[in-house]
């Protein structure tokens, strides 16, 4: 029975755990942005490869806010509507640097393995 209770379906095409956080932080390095803006930015910058379910952005944003890596503020959007803008905190910047370094290291490792004879 216990197994039944804990069974969770794994959604296909999910981003690697933690990757979304990295993408958000990196995107916000360019300046304060609202959720919609972040999703569009990730989509276009990744040359339309990384299609994330837009909704999944919000749990991640709130998680990051809770960690203290980003800060949220209500402001006016380009079409003069009220929107919630997120921006990096100094903690967030440090975290981004760390995660970027880690990711690069990881990607290099994967790259090396794929390249091996």
């Amino acid at each position: 029975m216990a197994k039944g209770i804990f069974k969770r379906k794994q959604e296909r095409g999910d981003l690697l755990q933690g990757t979304l956080d990295l993408l958000i932080l990196r995107t916000l390095q360019r300046g304060a942005m609202h959720g919609w803006g972040i999703s569009q930015s990730i989509y276009t910058v990744s040359q339309e490869v990384l299609q994330i379910k837009e909704g999944s952005l919000y749990p991640a944003l709130h998680r990051l806010e809770r960690q203290g890596w980003i800060r949220a503020e209500w402001g006016q959007s380009e079409n003069r509507r009220r929107a919630k803008f997120y921006q990096l905190t100094s903690d967030g910047k440090r975290q981004l640097a760390e995660e970027t370094a880690y990711w690069e290291q990881f990607a290099r490792a994967v790259h090396l393995i794929l390249k091996m004879g």
């Binding site: 809770r66 509507r81 929107a83 919630k84």
Partner: peptide
């Protein structure tokens, strides 16, 4: 963090409204 949470908790209804608004904005833009 805890205090932060607590404040959120106390402001629960407003927070829910804000989340609604945030998502509504996203859908509207989309």
């Amino acid at each position: 963090k805890f205090l932060f949470s607590l404040r959120r908790q106390l402001l629960n209804n407003r927070w829910e409204d804000e989340l609604d608004e945030e998502i509504r904005f996203h859908l509207e833009m989309s």
